[in-house]
Amino acid sequence: MWDVEIRGMASAHAIVASSIFMATVMPAVFVENFSVYGTHMVWLHCVAGSVAVVNIAVFWLLGISPPTKKNTLSYKLNRLFRSCLYFLLSCLFFHTVVVLYGAPLLESALETFSLAVLLSTLTTLRCLCILGPNVQAWIRVFSRDGAMSVWDTSLQITTGCSVIGAWLGALPIPLDWDRPWQIWPISCTLGATTGFLTGLLAAPVWIHWHRKQLTYKLK
């Protein structure tokens, strides 16, 4: 049982990670002069889009998301609407936090917001896919000892890693090194993506190593 779950998660993570890889390589076919630094915004949107699509597809197919009690169309629509709202709110929240950290308020607002969208895709969207638009469940997962399944633990790890990656990525921005990746928000997005990939890789490994200690309450 354990191994099956972990293996399933590892393969899901591998698919998501490969989608990021594809998003980095594929646009070169369609877009002229495509490069991660040069046409950074295109890259960013490709990554965000592909991660979103692949995440939704994978979790829908796997059926990880909590079973819905009512199967009516209006209920489903309601859920969809709430998910979109939460996603938008989380984008705004990240945008605010980034501005508070010192990003310019007006100029390059588009770049800042794109970063917020990327961060939301890497964190909130996965929460929405796995837990649904259920705030109670979110609070449970992110409070201490609240994880009830391997997916919850993986969620904790990937979310933490993405945010810490973005945090670390912001460190070298003000320095006078004049590198191409110091332009706002390249280092942050790269940091967040790297952190996310690390999280995807680390989560199955960590869970596998600690499977003795992890005792999940039954749902």
Binding site: I139, V141, F142, S143, T159, G160, V163, I164, A166, W167
Partner: peptide, 8 residues
């Protein structure tokens, strides 16, 4: 709350 940068 739970989405804050310090990991959880």
């Amino acid at each position: 709350g739970p989405l804050l940068p310090t990991g959880a």
